[in-house]
Structures are given as structure tokens and as C-alpha cells.
Amino acid sequence: MTAPRTQSGTRSAWRHGPLWYVGYALLLLWTVITVVPFVSMLLLSLHSTSDIYAHPLGLGGQWVLSNYADAWRGVVGGAPLSTYIINSVLVALCSLAIGVTCGSLAGYGLARATRGLSNAVSRVMVLALSVPLVVALIPTFELLGRYQMLNSVAGISLVYAAFMTPTIALIMRSVFAAVPRELLEAAKIDGYGELAALLRVVLPVSKGGFVSVTLLGLIFVWSEVQFGVVLLTRPQNRTLSVGLLSFQGQFVSDQGAFFAGLVIATFPIVILFLIFQRYVTSGITLGALK
């Protein structure tokens, strides 16, 4: 049935139309804009400062590796980059364990609750989500200080977990809402209780959603600066994104080391993402459930 009409040409005409090529060229342009910083920081990290000023694209001059040693040692008055990386990893693990668990459970509750309750709690979540981090800054500093949790992984992890929870809950609500009702009804017929149905039926088909919210939570934690600056005052406790802010000022005269620092901070998570990517690709596609 499909074969003759497909060949009648709408599709192939569209594919080869001039508009299609214009659109595709724009996609390529966006790709270049996307990639430029990664390529550029890599190239520039391999040159001395004078070469960088002479060849801003990083394609001329001598190629050197010494910038990496300089960047790894960190700046005067700061901690070595390895310390920042370890701190970021610990904070990410703790906050994700708490945030993804609480957020996903809440998302499931939102998907399953009666319309009135779901709407009410959703509104609370949206409000919590709409809270600019800055409004909680000073009182949080006060609160964690009171319980000796400043400069601690536990303290900042709890804060990050709390702020990622609404995002995760709302995304997981959409993920869970896409689970066919028939699947839940079938689980009930098989004698599963609510919790068993969640764990054995809903979770396996929602794996992709979990990977994506975990990834998104990780990105939030890895990037966060505002709380980090205030709650992690000692250099040896700082996360990567916070520690790197001091790079900017102190490596003004050493551009090569500056870019090497950016590369060291950026590429581990790029590699991590490329590993995660498989899961995201297969998982986020809820279409598999149809």
C-alpha cells in the first residue's frame, strides 16, 4: 500500500528541495558553534601565551604540553585540581543518591495521585522549582553553619539534592505518566501491590527517564557556583566549578595554563557523558513503550 504512493514523490522532492539544504546548512552552522569552544580550548592549551596572542585560533606557533603541569598544580592560594575533582565527584554521588530517589518517588506520586492532589503538589513543585537559588543563599549558610555542616560534602549535597528534587519530580511525572495505564492494570491483575507494581513493572520501563534525570542532576551539581562559593569557603573543600573561578583572575598572564585548566575540567565529564550517552539514547525514548 505504501510503496506506490511513496514513489509518487512528495518525500524525495522535499529531501532534495533547496529549503532542505538551507536548513541542513544551518544545522551544520550550529554544530560548528557548538564544537568551537571544545576544539579551541584544546588547541590553545597546547601553546605558550605569546603564541596564543599571535595566533588566537591556536593553529600557529610551537606545540607544548607544559601548560598542563602548571594548571594541575593550581593557582597560588588554591588547591590542586585533583582535589577539586574529587570533591565534585563526592558531592555529585551523595546529592544524586538523595535527589534522584526523593524526586523520582515524588514524580511517581504525582503521576498516580488524584487530579486534585497531583495538581496541588505539582504547584508546590513548580513554586520550589521557580525559586531562584539566590533567595535561599544567606539563610542556608546560617542553617548549615549552625550544624557545623559548612565545608562538608554532606551539607552541600543535601542542599543540591533539595534543589534538584522538583526538576526530577516534574520530569519523572511526565515519564511515569507515559507508562500505559494498561500496564498498571495488568500488574494489579497479577496481584502486585502499589509498591511492587512500581518496582517491578514501572521502574524497568522507565529506566531511560532515570538515566536522563541522573545525568541532568549531575550537570546541575557539576555546574553550580552560587551555593558552592558561599558554603565551601576553604579551598581544599571546593568543587571544580567553584575552584576554577579563581583560575580566571590568576592565570591572566598565563593563558596556556588557563586553557589547560579548562580542558582538565571539561574533558573528564565529556568522556563520562559519552559513556552515559548510550543509556540516554536508548532510555529517553519513551516511544519504545507504545
Binding site: C102, Y108, A113, L117, A128, V159, A161, F163
Partner: peptide
Amino acid sequence: PIAVMAPALVLLLVLV
């Protein structure tokens, strides 16, 4: 649904 939403709500109450 209320039970599974509770942990998140407690977290939000204390830290947001």
C-alpha cells in the same frame, strides 16, 4: 501517592 511524595516534600520544607 502521598507516602511516596513525602520524602521530597520534607527535603523541600527544610532546605527550600
